[in-house]
Amino acid sequence: MVAKIQPVVRSLYRNAGDFARRYAPLLILTSLVLLFTFISPNFMTVKNLTLMLRQVSFATISAVGIMFVMISGAIDLSIGSQIVFTNIVMAILMARYHVNPVLAILFCLFMGTFLGTVNGVLSVKLQIHPLIITLGTGTIYKGLGYIVANGKNIIGLPESFKVLGQGYIGPVPIPVLIMAVVALIGNFVLTRTYFGRYVFAMGGNPEAARLAGVDINRMRIITFAICGFASAITSVLLLSRVFSGQVFTGQGIEFDCLTAALLGGVSFIGGEGTIFGLITGVLIIGVLNNAMQLAGLPDFYQNVVKGTVLLVAVGFDMYQKRRRAKETIARVSTHG
């Protein structure tokens, strides 16, 4: 009798674990929202929620990019510095050289993609962990941004450029719309295309993916390029929102993206992640930030909370990985 029940109980446990893994972010988000609705009367208002969505939209677009890189088993810590650099260059193009905004935006997107490609090529050529590569290129990009800015805030952007970051279509802020479009496209590519499946495959097991005929090196470069492209979109929106070219725009955004991705179940080791989870992760951070602002806590608290949340998220990710590894070993050894 006991022997019969045991496997059932074990599989129940396993399913409960999978359930927790899949829906934990959503549960956390729901409870946070409920909590703050009760605590603060200003939280659950259309105006506040719209503002919060706009706030998170910028980081979310970058986060979709970093998600490609992370699922493929790498990481990009240079996102913030890429934005610093592209942001300043774009501002200068429009304010000093009066380049048509459309052309300037195109140039920025191209430049971001290029910066991402450089990260990818270096990772492939040097065969060093992308963490260190992007730590190095990040410093370089940031330095270039500072040099180009030459210690000045760049003002005098064309009024027509304002609409992207500050405009609305109906009741919805434009950055939120763009975020939705980027997330949908990202979701489509990851789940419905060969390319997306290759990204998962190389993150799950690069050697197996290689043997199955996936060109790992090319894929690595492309995923980094996608990440650069996404961050360039963020850069365009941020410049339009801030409406002057400043070297502080975008700095440290990689931290939010990384935390959001990990919170939403994108694995740090690669091979796992969904856009739905990512959005949940972004919203958790957004809600926390928003609630702390409403409560009038200084920014510094946010760092403490964000750092702790990141640690918990990675810790949970590692815990799940190890637990599953143990189960697999147990299953294989009992069934021969």
Partner: peptide, 23 residues
Amino acid sequence: SIRIFPLIATLATSAVFQGISYL
């Protein structure tokens, strides 16, 4: 003990230390 990749772990603790320092 949590066995997190040290780069990420110390990136996170550094954010915490930064926050506490300013607080």
